[in-house]
């Protein structure tokens, strides 16, 4: 392993959490780690990336109102043609990351390995781990063709750790020009809306309180936000509840939402479908409240309460309040 590239999604100079996880993983391969970034503030990400061991930052600069996919893929493809290819490009499984990976794959005619949850480069052989069948099975895979290998990695697969002081080098910033992308880059972002809430972020919180269909009605979702707030945690939701419009997508935990690793995950009225469990099974402790004794969530819960969430949770809220 000579060289690894990491896609460095950032906002106003702050890299997304997954970026630092990927840089840490790439450092562990024993290879040179370089990063590619775009958007306003790209150069501002240089300092923190340097502390994590990145030696070179390719900066595309502001891409205006374009969606990142076409421009970032085109710029990476052009840069790959101009210098020695990295062995791998690591891409976080974000919405923009998946778009970029897809376009890069088609442009370079290289396959992608997605849903990566672990990687290993021992003996110079790069392999990736993929968790399937709801986490009951892990497959190990590798590419058999040309480099770079394109890997789309799930959040929280690696812990982010800054490099030792001796490993930190001054980071070189290379300004990269974006080639013409033609009609593929015709989409334009008109406005951006944030659905942020107060309290800790869902994927960083010590406690996550999640609600599912067992809540019975949209109004009962307020029980989840209230309990989360009392425990200084973040509210979460199953896909069913998000699809039904009871909670915003930003709260969704699971395969198509966020992956969380809190100390305690409290699943309220969630049956424990595979697509939900893959997003929370790495919690240190799981508490589940569900009416149905046969719900699969009880098979993985450290504490299971068989009962009606709309009765148990209000009593829990009241009891916690009474302690203050």
């Amino acid at each position: 392993m000579d060289k690894t590239w990491v896609l460095a999604e950032q906002r106003d100079g702050t890299p997304a959490g997954i970026v630092l996880e990927l840089v840490t993983a790439a450092r562990g391969f024993g290879s040179v780690v370089e990063a590619v970034t775009w958007g306003p503030g790209g150069a501002g990400a240089a300092a923190v990336l340097g502390r994590y061991g990145v030696t070179k930052l390719y900066n595309l600069g502001d891409i205006g109102e374009s969606l990142p996919g076409p421009k970032v893929a085109a710029a990476i493809a052009a840069q790959l043609a101009a210098e020695s290819r990295p062995d791998a490009i690591l891409i976080g499984a974000t919405h923009d990351g998946r778009d970029i990976a897809a376009r890069l794959s088609a442009r370079l005619d290289l396959p992608v390995l997605a849903n990566v949850v672990g990687m290993d480069a021992s003996g110079g052989r790069l392999t990736s781990e993929h968790s399937i069948f709801g986490g009951s099975t892990v497959v190990r895979a590798e590419f058999t063709g040309a480099v770079p290998g394109l890997f789309i990695v799930q959040a929280k697969s690696f812990a982010a750790e800054a490099a030792e002081a001796a490993e930190q080098r001054s980071l070189e910033i290379v300004e990269v020009e974006v080639p013409d992308t033609g009609p593929s880059d015709a989409a334009r972002v008109v406005t951006r809306h944030e659905e942020e809430h107060s309290g800790p972020k869902l994927d960083e919180a010590t406690v996550v309180v999640s609600g599912g269909r067992g809540l019975g009605s949209p109004g009962n979702y307020a029980l989840i936000t209230e309990l989360a707030q009392l425990l200084n945690g973040a509210p979460g939701a199953s896909r069913a509840v998000v699809d039904a419009g009871w909670a915003p997508y930003a709260f969704q935990v699971g395969q198509t939402g966020k992956t969380v690793k809190p100390v305690v995950y409290i699943a309220c009225g969630i049956s424990g479908a595979t697509l939900h469990v893959v997003g929370m099974r790495a919690a240190q402790y799981i508490i589940a409240v569900n009416k149905d004794r046969e719900a699969p969530i009880f098979a993985i819960a450290d504490l299971g309460v068989v009962g009606d969430v709309t009765k148990v949770i209000p009593r829990l809220i009241e009891a916690i309040r009474a302690r203050r």
Binding site: G135, T137, I286, R293, A301, D302, L303, G304, V305, D308
Partner: peptide
């Protein structure tokens, strides 16, 4: 390979 599954813990009927 199969992964060691999490085990069910204590159950309390409300």
């Amino acid at each position: 390979r199969a992964v060691k599954a999490r085990e069910a813990g204590e159950i309390v009927v409300d």
